[in-house]
């Protein structure tokens, strides 16, 4: 039984094992939006650290895919968790109260993709100016004509 199987036991998540020599990902799983909070709590107590919270705009399918990457300091397994949300009103539950480091990652994903991380106490923009409301990493983003002009 691998470390990941042992950790995720009883969570009803089907894990795939891609070729890590080719992709650098040791295990991946797609979860539903409701599963991410119990899952990340399990991962936190198993000692996995958060590498990144981000997203991919799959404009052809009209969805935004959240990509969470976890790793472990001793077991060295990169675990990729993905989940899908509707592109018009993207929403994910926050994991910022479980992983304190996730707050900044969620602020960044929030401003770049317009994702609402529900329950997050800090939804301010992180890297863009606080007044900005456009989402540059969306595939249909067009550079505003007066991008430099911020009130």
């Amino acid at each position: 039984m691998t470390f990941i199987e042992e950790t995720l036991e009883g969570l009803d998540i089907s894990v795939e094992y891609p070729d890590s020599a080719l992709t650098g990902i040791d295990a991946q799983a797609e979860v539903s939006v409701e599963q991410i909070r119990p899952l990340s709590r399990t991962l936190f107590y198993a000692g996995l650290f958060l590498e990144s919270v981000s997203a991919i705009d799959l404009i052809a399918d009209e969805i935004i895919e959240g990509v969470y990457l976890f790793n472990h300091y001793e077991q060295h397994v990169r675990l990729k968790i993905t989940m899908k949300t509707d592109r018009t009103t993207p929403k994910f539950p926050t994991i910022g109260d479980i992983y304190p480091g996730a707050v900044w990652h969620e602020r960044e994903a929030g401003e770049f993709f317009g994702i609402d991380f529900e329950g997050s106490k800090d939804k301010r923009n992180l890297l863009l100016p606080v007044e900005t409301t456009f989402h540059p990493l969306r595939k249909d983003f067009k550079r505003p004509e007066q991008a430099g002009k911020i009130q």
Binding site: F44, G47, L48, F49, L50, E51, Y73, Y99, P100, G101
Partner: peptide, 8 residues
């Protein structure tokens, strides 16, 4: 706890 919580 902070080492993996913050992803150091």
């Amino acid at each position: 706890f902070d080492t993996w919580g913050y992803g150091l």
